[in-house]
Amino acid sequence: MVPLHWYLTLSAAVFMIGMFGFLTRRNIIIMFMSVELMLNAVNISLVSFSHYLQDLRGHVLVFFVITVAAAEAAIGLAIIISLFRNKQTAHVDEMNEMKG
C-alpha cells in the first residue's frame, strides 16, 4: 500500500514546478500552461484524499475543477488571441500599458 504522504508530496512537487514556471517564463502561453499544471496538481491531491478517506466528494470536486479549467482555457486563449492581434507578440514584458 502506497502511503498518502507520497501522493501529497508528488502533488506539492508538481504544484511548485507549475508555480516556478508561472513566475519565471515570459511566454504567455507557457505561463498559462503552468496554471493548468497547478490545477492538475490539486486534482491529484483531491483524488488521493478521496481514495484514502473512502469518500467520493473529492471526485465531485475534481469534476468541477476540470469544468472551471476548461472555461478558463477558453477565455484565456481568447484573451491571448486578441492581445496578439493588437501587439503581435506573446511576450509578457512587452505588455506594459497598465504599468503605474
Partner: peptide, 23 residues
C-alpha cells in the same frame, strides 16, 4: 491506480482531448 476510472477518462477526454488541442 487510485480507483477513479471516471476521473481518468475525463482527464484524457477533456484535458488531453479538448484543452490541449485548444492550446
Amino acid at each position: 491506480f487510485l480507483n477513479a476510472e471516471f476521473i481518468a477518462a475525463i482527464q484524457v477526454i477533456v484535458y488531453a482531448g479538448a484543452i490541449l488541442v485548444l492550446f
